[in-house]
Amino acid sequence: HNLTITQGKLFFHYNPKLCLSEIHKMEEVSGTKGRQERNDIALKTNGDQASCENELLKFSYIRTSFDKILLRWEPYWPPDFRDLLGFMLFYKEAPYQNVTEFDGQDACGSNSWTVVDIDPPLRSNDPKSQNHPGWLMRGLKPWTQYAIFVKTLVTFSDERRTYGAKSDIIYVQTDATNPSVPLDPISVSNSSSQIILKWKPPSDPNGNITHYLVFWERQAEDSELFELDYCLKGLKLPSRTWSPPFESEDSQKHNQSEYEDSAGECCSCPKTDSQILKELEESSFRKTFEDYLHNVVFVPRKTSSGTGAEDPRPSRKRRSLGDVGNVTVAVPTVAAFPNTSSTSVPTSPEEHRPFEKVVNKESLVISGLRHFTGYRIELQACNQDTPEERCSVAAYVSARTMPEAKADDIVGPVTHEIFENNVVHLMWQEPKEPNGLIVLYEVSYRRYGDEELHLCVSRKHFALERGCRLRGLSPGNYSVRIRATSLAGNGSWTEPTYFYVTDYLDVPSNIA
C-alpha cells in the first residue's frame, strides 16, 4: 500500500525493539523526510534493546553428524571492536523451508527459537588472519532439518551509529543413524509349514526405512522333555500350542467401542483428552525405555581390526524358502538304536541362519518350516543398504507352526516275539517326523474274553527296548493296539495285532 503524509511529521519514542533503520525507511515511504526535528525521533529510546544489523554474515563451514552440527561463519568486528559482546545463534526444527525470524513471537518477546549466546573469538592483530567464530550444536535429532541463523550482539553506541551483522536463515539436516526397533511384532501360524509375521514401523526411523531383515531359527525343545518319565503317576503330560491366527481386521481397528449394538453396526467412541494424553505418555515412556535398553543392555560386537582377528559373527547367506525346513542338525536320541526319531534339535552355532529381506511392506510369510516346531524370529529395521547396512537392534518374537495331521501315527506293522515265561516283546517304529517329539506310547492289549488293559511306555523305555515287553501273560489269544502321544496330543491307534500265548508248562520236552 502507498502511504503519503502531505502535512505533519513523524514522532517515535520509547520503541526499544524498533531499529532506527526501520524508522528511516518509514520517513522515505511516507514522504516526511526532512520535516522531523532532532528530538522527534529519539536516538536513545528507539532500538536500544534490539540488534540492528546492516551487514550480512556468511557461514564459512558446515559439518553434520547424526546428532551434531558444527558451524563456522566469517569474522565480524565493528569499528570499535570492544562493542562486540558476542553472537546469538538461533535454531529450531523446520520440516519445511518457510521459516521466518519472527515465527511464534508474542507480545512478551518470546519466540519459538532456541538461542545460544556465543563469546567472540580472540581478536588477531592481523586483519587478514582473524579467527572464524563458530559453535557445535549438540543433542539434535537424527535425520531432522533445522533452520539456523546467527547475528551479532553489540553494545549501545553513544554516537548512535547503527552497526551489526546478521546471516540469512539456512537449512541444515542432520545425518541418518540406526533406527529404533520395529514396533509390535506379531507372529502367527496359518499352516503346519508357515508363519505369518506382521509389525509396525519404528517410532524413530532416523532416516528413510529402506528394508527390513527377518531372521528365523528353529528352537530346540526343553531338555526336561527328553529326561522326564511322563508315565509316572502324578506327572502331567506336557503340551505345546501353536500360535493362533490373526483376529479379523475389524476387531483390530483402534479407537473402536468394545460393545456392539445388537441391531447392527455401531460407531466408534472418540477417545477423551485424558485417554489420548495417557497414550502419549505411555508411548514416550516406551521410547525412553527402549533407548535405555539399547544403550545399557546391548553391547556392540567388536569388529575385526587390522591384526587379522576374525569377526566372530557368522556370515549372512541367503537361502531359498524351500530350504528352511531342514535348518537344524538332527541327532538321534540314543545312538545305539537307529530307529528312534531325530527330534532332539541342538543347533550348531556355526550354522548360517536363513533370512529374508523385506522391502516396502511390514509383513512376511515364512514358508518351508517344520510342522509343530518353535521358531525364534528376529526382526531388524534398516535405513541404508549400501555401502553397508545400517540397521536397528533386533526385536524378537516366537511362534510355533501348526501340527501336521497323521504325523504322530505309527507307520509300519507292530511285530512281536514270544519268549519263555510268557513274555512277549512288542516292537514298532517311532514316527519319523512327529509333531514336536514323542513323549510316550500307549499300549492297549486284551486277552479274548477279558477286559482291555493299558500300559504306558516312556520315551526312554522305548529307546532301550525298541518297544516294550509284556510279562506274566496268561495263555490265550491276544490283540494289541499302540498309539503315540506327542507334544500336540495323541496320534491314531494302530491296526490290531494278534498273537497267541501258550502255557509254557505244557511245552513238550526233548528229553527222552
Score class of each variant (00 low, 15 high):
396 Y>R: 12
349 P>V: 03
400 R>P: 02
288 T>G: 08
505 L>A: 10
466 R>S: 13
328 T>Y: 13
335 A>F: 03
365 V>R: 04
476 G>C: 00
331 V>H: 14
279 E>Q: 15
315 S>H: 11
458 S>R: 09
401 T>M: 03
372 F>M: 06
498 Y>E: 13
478 Y>H: 10
497 T>L: 07
470 L>R: 01
316 R>Q: 15
449 G>V: 01
265 E>M: 03
479 S>K: 05
348 S>E: 13
421 N>A: 12
383 N>Q: 10
314 P>L: 02
384 Q>H: 15
242 W>A: 09
433 E>T: 08
228 L>H: 03
246 F>M: 15
500 Y>H: 10
246 F>N: 15
400 R>K: 07
248 S>C: 13
248 S>F: 13
469 R>V: 09
298 F>P: 07
229 D>V: 06
429 Q>G: 12
221 E>L: 11
231 C>N: 01
226 F>D: 14
348 S>N: 15
250 D>K: 15
465 E>H: 11
440 L>T: 12
487 L>D: 11
478 Y>V: 01
371 H>R: 12
449 G>S: 11
259 Y>T: 12
215 F>I: 08
324 V>P: 09
344 S>F: 07
286 R>N: 03
224 E>Q: 05
354 P>V: 08
276 I>Q: 14
220 A>C: 15
424 V>M: 03
263 A>F: 08
226 F>G: 03
320 S>G: 15
229 D>W: 10
465 E>M: 08
399 A>T: 08
343 T>D: 07
322 G>M: 13
434 P>F: 14
416 H>A: 10
302 K>G: 08
408 D>H: 02
384 Q>K: 08
251 S>L: 12
384 Q>A: 13
285 F>D: 14
496 P>Q: 02
209 I>G: 12
422 N>M: 05
211 H>R: 06
433 E>P: 03
451 E>Q: 15
235 L>N: 11
509 S>P: 13
272 T>V: 06
345 V>I: 15
290 E>H: 08
239 S>A: 10
486 S>L: 01
282 E>K: 13
398 S>F: 05
414 V>G: 01
274 S>L: 04
351 E>D: 10
453 L>C: 02
483 R>N: 05
282 E>Y: 05
496 P>K: 15
356 E>M: 14
322 G>K: 04
361 K>A: 13
260 E>T: 14
259 Y>V: 06
322 G>L: 11
224 E>P: 10
274 S>M: 14
440 L>K: 12
488 A>V: 10
504 Y>V: 13
294 H>A: 03
414 V>Y: 01
455 L>Y: 10
282 E>S: 10
375 Y>E: 00
405 A>S: 07
300 P>H: 10
380 Q>M: 14
278 K>E: 06
256 Q>W: 07
470 L>D: 01
369 L>T: 08
272 T>R: 08
412 G>T: 08
342 S>P: 11
342 S>N: 06
309 A>S: 15
316 R>L: 05
452 E>A: 13
481 R>F: 04
433 E>M: 04
466 R>A: 07
500 Y>M: 06
273 D>K: 09
302 K>Q: 10
373 T>C: 02
266 C>S: 14
325 G>W: 15
304 S>E: 06
384 Q>M: 12
365 V>P: 12
405 A>H: 13
283 S>T: 10
483 R>A: 05
229 D>M: 11
492 S>T: 03
299 V>L: 03
271 K>M: 15
301 R>L: 09
431 P>N: 04
246 F>W: 07
290 E>V: 10
411 V>R: 11
229 D>S: 13
502 T>D: 09
440 L>S: 06
324 V>N: 14
496 P>A: 15
316 R>M: 15
235 L>K: 07
362 E>T: 06
259 Y>S: 09
396 Y>F: 00
256 Q>M: 14
447 R>L: 14
502 T>F: 06
383 N>E: 02
239 S>E: 10
509 S>V: 09
461 H>P: 04
356 E>N: 14
478 Y>D: 00
276 I>V: 09
373 T>K: 07
362 E>W: 14
454 H>R: 04
312 P>Y: 15
449 G>W: 02
224 E>G: 04
338 P>Q: 05
398 S>C: 10
395 A>M: 07
372 F>D: 03
404 E>V: 10
430 E>H: 05
380 Q>A: 05
468 C>N: 01
252 Q>F: 15
404 E>M: 06
425 H>S: 12
257 S>M: 03
327 V>W: 08
399 A>C: 09
442 E>F: 06
488 A>F: 11
404 E>P: 02
327 V>A: 07
267 C>H: 15
431 P>Y: 01
395 A>G: 12
414 V>I: 12
441 Y>I: 11
242 W>L: 14
439 V>A: 06
300 P>N: 06
257 S>K: 10
469 R>L: 07
270 P>D: 15
497 T>W: 07
477 N>C: 03
328 T>C: 13
383 N>H: 05
351 E>L: 15
445 Y>K: 01
394 A>P: 08
287 K>Q: 06
383 N>S: 09
211 H>W: 05
465 E>T: 10
362 E>I: 12
472 G>W: 05
389 E>T: 10
435 N>A: 02
271 K>Y: 14
489 G>F: 08
331 V>T: 10
402 M>R: 07
383 N>R: 05
383 N>K: 02
303 T>P: 13
356 E>D: 05
273 D>Y: 05
478 Y>N: 00
210 T>L: 08
375 Y>A: 03
281 E>D: 15
327 V>G: 09
456 C>Q: 01
351 E>T: 14
220 A>P: 08
303 T>H: 07
439 V>N: 04
365 V>L: 08
453 L>M: 07
443 V>M: 10
355 F>T: 12
245 P>V: 11
435 N>K: 00
414 V>N: 01
387 P>S: 10
336 A>M: 15
362 E>A: 11
355 F>H: 10
